[in-house]
Simulated scan of single mutants.
Amino acid sequence: MVGVNGNKVGHLFENISSFVRQCIFSVLNVGPVPSHIAFIMDGNRRYSKKQNLIDGNGHRAGFSALINMLKYCYELGVKYITVYAFSIDNFKRRPEEVVSLMKLMQEKIDELTKEESIVNRLGIRIYFQGNLKLLSDHVRSAAERAMVKTSGNSKAILSICVAYTSTDEIVHAVQESCEEKWDEIRKNNDGGNLIRLEENVKDKDEHRIGVTNVDRHMYMSVCPDPDIIIRTSGAARLSNFLLWQSAHCLLYSPAALWPEIGLRHLIWVILDFQRNYLYLKEKKKQS
């Protein structure tokens, strides 16, 4: 009987919380709502130490925070959500820690793709962005399965950056752009005389690589540039995350560690975004 009553109280609390969120989001939707919010999920290990948790439980708490933030962003009407889950630099941590994180990542990826998961209930499509060749075979396979399984979802997009740094993304995009342009040159000249092309200034201009070429080959080309980047734990740095895409976005660094992030932090940054919306919009026009 106690368990039944506890479930009823839990459902009642969730219904009340959902109603309150709907009221708040209805007010926020009167103003501009960001299309894309990106998160640097910083502070899982510090949270674990702070709460005296065993290894891995800080990241498990962080996963719960991610699920809640996904739900809040979806209810607010944010179309694109991006999270920085694992940097290439994180591979430099202790080998046993990396192995533990990879196992946890595989577990949570599989959890995300279950039929009853929040991702499928809300119709969220998942992309994994980064140098996926650096991942273990099991994690890479899990990521590939997740992208296939959610490919039919279209209501929102979750980009999970793993084995990622922005400098690696930029180098990758430049390399892809060079290869594409070289193939184009060879096709246009039928593999023939490239000296003639060098002598023709007009042709040289036509075959230069520009910003649009690099943009198209970015890992993050499936999303518009972020409107807001949120980094938890109070650190005011991007840590090699979305450097190419963040020229005109709002940066927010709450003191809360990632597992501690909640609805109030999201509401605050949305209000700040709306307050600065015209200024940010003007800056984008000038670029």
Rank of each mutant, 00 (worst) to 15 (best):
H11S: 10
G58F: 08
K281Q: 14
Q245I: 06
I270Y: 02
C249I: 09
V211C: 07
Y164V: 10
S166C: 11
I209R: 00
T167R: 15
F241D: 06
N29D: 04
V201R: 11
R145Q: 14
K149I: 14
F128H: 07
I54L: 14
T165H: 05
G3L: 12
V211A: 09
F128N: 03
R60D: 09
G130N: 10
L101M: 09
A173H: 00
S100A: 15
E115L: 11
A143M: 03
F63N: 02
E14M: 14
A61W: 07
N5K: 02
L12M: 09
V174G: 01
P254S: 10
D137T: 13
I24H: 03
C249V: 05
L242Y: 02
P259E: 09
I157M: 12
H11A: 14
V9M: 10
S48W: 03
E184K: 13
Q22N: 13
F128L: 08
E206N: 12
V83G: 00
E179I: 10
H59W: 03
F91V: 08
H248D: 11
Q245K: 14
G58D: 04
R46W: 11
S64I: 11
R208P: 01
E180A: 15
L12G: 02
S287W: 10
D183Q: 15
Q22C: 07
R264H: 13
M102S: 12
I157Q: 04
N68P: 01
M69Q: 03
S246G: 06
L158T: 03
K8R: 08
R186P: 00
V83R: 00
A146W: 04
E198F: 13
H217K: 11
E184H: 09
K114F: 08
K149L: 14
Q175C: 14
A61F: 13
D227I: 05
A61N: 11
V98C: 07
L243I: 15
L132T: 11
K284D: 01
M1N: 05
Y74E: 04
N7S: 04
Q286W: 08
D225F: 01
M41K: 04
E282S: 15
D227V: 06
D225C: 15
I40M: 12
P259R: 07
Y127E: 06
S287N: 13
P95L: 13
T82Y: 03
K79G: 00
R196H: 08
E115P: 06
S64V: 09
L263T: 01
I126W: 06
E14D: 13
N29V: 04
V4G: 01
R145T: 13
N189S: 08
V9Y: 07
S35Q: 11
V27P: 00
R94C: 12
N7A: 04
G77I: 02
K181W: 04
S177T: 08
V33Q: 02
L76M: 10
N120C: 12
